[in-house]
């Protein structure tokens, strides 16, 4: 007869609590930086995808297909280990001297998620009546300026719900960064488990924190879109 003894104190105080908190800090940093970058990059790729310049359009198309159809884990390994082979020696030296683990994770999360965000934004743009583009072009705006001031602000507003989904995915996917040694939340939960063998407690704590993070992100984006984007009512 084997019985599992619960001991929640390991995750509510002391050293292991500190680990979980430090993991949370890193998860928040990783997610926040990647969300902002992925959104901006996604906007850019979406615009490129709709460009009338053929090479630009095909580049964006290839980008989307490639990064949406490759597992994120593979991409993380690619940027961390694979980039070593293609980068010049001096660049590698420099990368190894800084916190390249974090940077590689941000790059992978950003690029992977931006591909999904770009497609969401593109479908948002396609739902904006073409007359909006005609009106802004008639006003003397170039194609890119029209996108920037007229089309994208409207498209992003429509795209808010799928965007929230992508942001949440990104936050959860950030746990894969632990495979290259980034000590984020899941990594720390595993550490706590490895040291205390209190896996249920550690992962329950991590789960609750992820749920809380998701709720907070949803609230922030929803509030922002209500306050800033939906003033028109």
């Amino acid at each position: 007869m084997l019985k599992y003894e619960f001991d929640w104190s390991v995750v509510t105080s002391g050293q292991y609590y500190d680990w979980i908190v430090s993991g949370l800090h890193l998860t928040i940093q990783l997610s926040a930086v990647s969300i902002v970058l992925a959104f901006l990059l996604g906007l850019m790729i979406a615009v490129m995808r709709m460009s009338s310049v053929k090479p630009v359009k095909w580049f964006a198309h290839g980008y989307l297909e490639f990064f949406r159809n490759t597992p994120l884990l593979v991409q993380i390994f690619f940027w961390y280990f694979g980039s070593y082979k293609i980068l010049p020696h001096a660049v590698n030296e420099w990368l190894n001297s800084v916190n390249f683990e974090f940077a590689a994770a941000v790059i992978a999360l950003t690029i992977y998620t931006s591909a999904f965000i770009a497609e969401d934004i593109r479908s948002g743009v396609l739902s904006i009546p073409k007359e909006q583009m005609e009106a802004s072009r008639s006003g003397g705006f170039s194609y890119l300026r029209s996108m920037q001031y007229i089309i994208l602000p409207q498209a992003v507003r429509i795209t808010i719900p799928p965007l929230i989904g992508q942001f949440l995915n990104l936050t959860k996917n950030s746990s894969l960064a632990m495979t290259i040694g980034v000590a984020e939340l899941t990594y720390q939960a595993r550490q706590v488990e490895a040291y205390t063998f209190k896996g249920f407690e550690a992962f329950t704590a991590a789960t609750l924190v992820y749920v809380a993070l998701s709720i907070i992100i949803t609230a922030i984006v929803t509030l922002y879109s209500k306050k800033v984007l939906h003033r028109a009512g």
Binding site: F81, Y84, N92, N96, M178, T179, I180, G181
Partner: peptide, 15 residues
């Protein structure tokens, strides 16, 4: 830096 297994740790050393 804790990797999933030793071969990755060794790869990190090589690089």
């Amino acid at each position: 830096l804790s990797f999933d297994d030793y071969p990755q740790a060794f790869l990190a050393l090589q690089q």
